[in-house]
């Protein structure tokens, strides 16, 4: 029983347009409604701006830069939901359109990506193949993570 539980992982599916991606549910801190994001001059494509969250600036991460099938954020575009997620470098805001309830799947169902693009791994939830996005890996791949973090 205990071994079976440890083989489950909890994922949070996020939708942008017809495309879905999943993040590890344990990273998600809060899900906000429609919240405008603010482009920051001199910021990068991946981290193009901030949102105001509890009076503090939270860096926005554009999943469209990582996952080529997703549309990019555009200046002043506002999506229906913002997922606030925890990383080793603090909170990040992920503007999305839909957030599914947390899904528990056997870790064995996570496989190397063949049907989706942008992440080395994917998973199928409700018959939809979707990339499994690891935020810490994204930061590491872009040289943003602290040495030894993650």
């Amino acid at each position: 029983m205990g071994a079976a539980r440890s083989a489950q992982i909890e994922l949070l599916p996020l939708g942008i347009g017809p495309i879905w991606a999943a993040i590890h549910a344990e990273c998600a801190v809060e899900i906000l409604g429609r919240t405008p994001w603010i482009p920051v001059p001199s910021a990068s494509e991946l981290i193009p701006g901030v949102i105001a969250h509890r009076g503090r600036a939270v860096a926005v991460l554009d999943l469209g830069v990582v996952l080529p099938d997703l549309p990019r954020l555009t200046a002043r575009s506002t999506r229906e939901r913002v997922v606030i997620a925890r990383t080793s470098l603090g909170l990040v805001a992920l503007p999305v359109e839909k957030v599914h309830e947390v899904v528990s799947v056997p870790s064995a169902e996570v496989r190397e990506a063949t049907l989706t693009r942008g992440s080395p791994f994917e998973v199928t939830i409700d018959d939809k193949a979707m990339p499994l996005v690891d935020l810490e890996t994204i930061l590491e791949q872009r040289g943003l993570a602290r040495p030894g973090a993650g």
């Binding site: 405008p36 603010i38 920051v40 001059p41 991946l46 901030v50 600036a57 470098l89």
Partner: peptide, 30 residues
């Protein structure tokens, strides 16, 4: 309290050092 520092992630991603922080004025206004 109205001033927010630049998030570390934004700074590491290349945001200018000349940007010291944000003062939020309302939804989407800074």
């Amino acid at each position: 309290e109205a001033r927010s520092p630049v998030p570390e992630l934004l700074r590491r991603a290349g945001c200018s050092d000349a940007l010291l922080g944000f003062v939020f004025r309302g939804p989407g206004e800074v």
